[in-house]
Every structure is written in C-alpha cells, then in structure tokens.
Amino acid sequence: GIPATNLSRVAGLEKQLAIELKVKQGAENMIQTYSNGSTKDRKLLLTAQQMLQDSKTKIDIIRMQLRRALQ
C-alpha cells in the first residue's frame, strides 16, 4: 500500500491541482475575451497568455509529484 504520509501529500497535491486547473480555465477564458478586443486589450491578452503558460507548467509539475507520491 501507500504510506499515510504520502496519502496526505496526495490530498494536498490534488487540492493544488484543482486550483491550478481553475486558474488555467480562467486564463483561457481571458484569452478568448481579449483576443478579439482592441489594442488596449493587448497587454491583458499577453498577461493572460503568460498566466496560462505558468499554469500549464505548474499542472505538469503537480502531476509529476502526484505520480511519484503514488508509486
């Protein structure tokens, strides 16, 4: 079985993952909103794209940590 310490770690990672998935969803929504907007929305679009990139990276890292914890 999986050690108890790993189980609480997994629960924490799953919570983090859920949050990051919401951030990713929000960033994707912002990108959709701003991509057909005016030029003043360009900065917001770039910010949203950066957020999305960061979020995807975090999600990958969390998933990797989850896999390790579940081994």
Rank of each mutant, 00 (worst) to 15 (best):
Q49I: 15
G26K: 15
Q25Y: 06
A69Q: 04
R9W: 12
A27K: 01
L13E: 00
R42E: 15
T47K: 14
K22M: 09
K58T: 03
K56M: 13
L66G: 00
T39H: 09
A18G: 04
G1K: 14
I2H: 13
K24W: 06
N6D: 10
L17S: 00
T47D: 11
R68L: 15
G12E: 15
Q65R: 05
Q49C: 15
K24A: 08
D54Q: 06
K22E: 08
D60R: 14
V10R: 03
Q71K: 07
L70P: 02
R63T: 05
N6G: 09
R63E: 06
T33K: 15
A4T: 10
L46F: 06
M64W: 10
R68K: 14
M64A: 13
S8Q: 12
T33P: 01
A69D: 03
Q49L: 14
G1M: 08
L44S: 04
G1P: 12
D54M: 06
K22L: 12
G1Q: 10
K22G: 06
E20M: 14
L21M: 11
K43F: 10
L46D: 04
N29I: 13
G1T: 11
E28A: 04
L66P: 00
V23Q: 06
L44I: 04
L44D: 04
E14D: 02
L7G: 09
G37D: 11
V23S: 06
L66Q: 01
A48Y: 09
M64R: 13
K15I: 08
V23L: 09
A11V: 08
L66K: 01
T33V: 11
K43M: 08
E14L: 15
K15H: 08
P3L: 07
L46S: 05
G12W: 15
L45R: 02
E20Q: 14
M30G: 01
A18F: 08
I59V: 03
Q53L: 07
E28R: 04
V10D: 01
S35H: 08
L21D: 01
R68Q: 12
I2F: 11
A4F: 01
K56P: 00
R42W: 14
L46K: 08
E20C: 13
S38G: 12
K40S: 10
Q25A: 11
V23N: 12
L13P: 00
S55Y: 01
Q50A: 10
I31C: 05
A18M: 09
L66T: 01
T5Y: 06
Y34F: 07
K15V: 06
I61T: 09
T57V: 10
R63Y: 12
I62A: 00
S55L: 03
L45P: 00
Q32C: 13
A11G: 04
G12Q: 15
Q16V: 04
T5S: 10
T33D: 15
S55N: 01
V10Y: 05
K56T: 12
Q65W: 06
K43W: 06
I2Y: 11
Q32P: 02
A11K: 09
M64C: 14
S35Q: 12
Q53K: 12
